[in-house]
């Protein structure tokens, strides 16, 4: 409950934030804090400096492009997504955000925080990979974009490295999406989750909670048997823990993949 000592800075622009992040070794961005503050309470993480992004209005926009692309600022909260008419252009976004934790967490927790923390049980990493999202990362030297599939590199690790900031997430137009999860209690932490989309060319099924990063499967067709066999063929090596054995997680991955793809099919037209 009691955090280790830490320094705190509250920049007013992305530029200033990037300066702080590179100036101080051991600095970490503080977004909604719904994961980071908890981890610090457990003293499982002890950053030297927290760079609070709350004043960076440039990271709080939700835009709908003429081509149907939805662009979310990294500091957009789950509640913002749920309430946004623009975000509704890709309905699954708000639907999944509404399943994350509880009102209090949704009011503070941010899309950027969710994906940058890349906890394997998070909802948004598999979803954004399935939707074919693109992450924009800014560093002092400039900006680059990374496809979601390459953004997640390890447990709690992403392509946004030290001294960098995830600024926006762009989600292309579409609607034939699905998401299925088994959680601990209703709307709880995911035991296994699967996101699927039929809008990115070939059907894409992404399994969460079974590895350090979301596992991407392209079964070639949206046939349910093909999807199930793709999951079986993926040779998943999920962790065993108090909530599920590896076998159970493997099994759930298959069942949930079928459900996610079915939901996506139901929304194709």
């Amino acid at each position: 409950m009691l955090l280790p000592e830490v320094e705190y800075a509250r920049p007013s622009s992305v530029q200033e934030a990037l300066g702080l992040l590179s100036e101080y070794e051991g600095a970490r961005p503080l977004a909604g804090g719904q994961t980071l503050v908890n981890v610090m309470k457990a003293r499982a993480a002890a950053p030297d400096v927290l760079v609070d992004l709350q004043d960076l209005d440039e990271l709080k926009g939700i835009d709908l492009g003429a081509d149907g692309t939805v662009t979310l600022g990294a500091m957009v909260t789950y509640s913002d997504v749920i309430g946004s008419a623009e975000a509704r252009a890709r309905p699954i976004l708000g639907e999944v955000c509404a399943q994350i934790a509880d009102v209090q967490v949704r009011n503070r927790g941010t899309v950027g925080g969710n994906i940058c923390s890349n906890d394997p049980t998070n909802h948004l990493p598999p979803l954004l990979v399935a939707l074919g999202a693109t992450m924009t990362i800014r560093a002092a030297g400039g900006e680059r974009t990374v496809p979601a599939e390459q953004f997640f590199v390890g447990v709690y690790q992403t392509a946004a490295g030290p001294g960098e900031l995830l600024t926006t997430i762009s989600i292309p137009a579409g609607k034939a999406d699905g998401f299925a999860a088994v959680t601990i209690g209703k709307d709880g932490t995911c035991i296994v989750n699967v996101a699927a989309s039929l809008d990115g060319g070939s059907p894409c099924v992404v399994v969460g909670c079974v590895d350090a990063v979301p596992i991407v499967l392209r079964p070639g067709t949206d046939d349910e048997d093909a999807v199930r066999s793709a999951v079986r063929g993926a040779n998943l090596q999920p962790p065993s823990d108090v909530h599920a054995s590896a076998d159970y997680r493997r099994h759930l991955a298959e069942v949930l993949a079928a459900r996610a793809i079915r939901q996506a099919q139901g929304r194709r037209n």
Binding site: G33, D52, V105, N107, R108
Partner: peptide, 22 residues
């Protein structure tokens, strides 16, 4: 647990998941 819930600029939040400086 939510026992620490307060309204923060009108939104309900858990005050144990925020720093006072924020």
């Amino acid at each position: 647990c939510g026992a620490c819930s307060v309204l923060y600029d009108g939104l309900v939040v858990k005050s144990c998941m925020m720093l006072a400086v924020q």
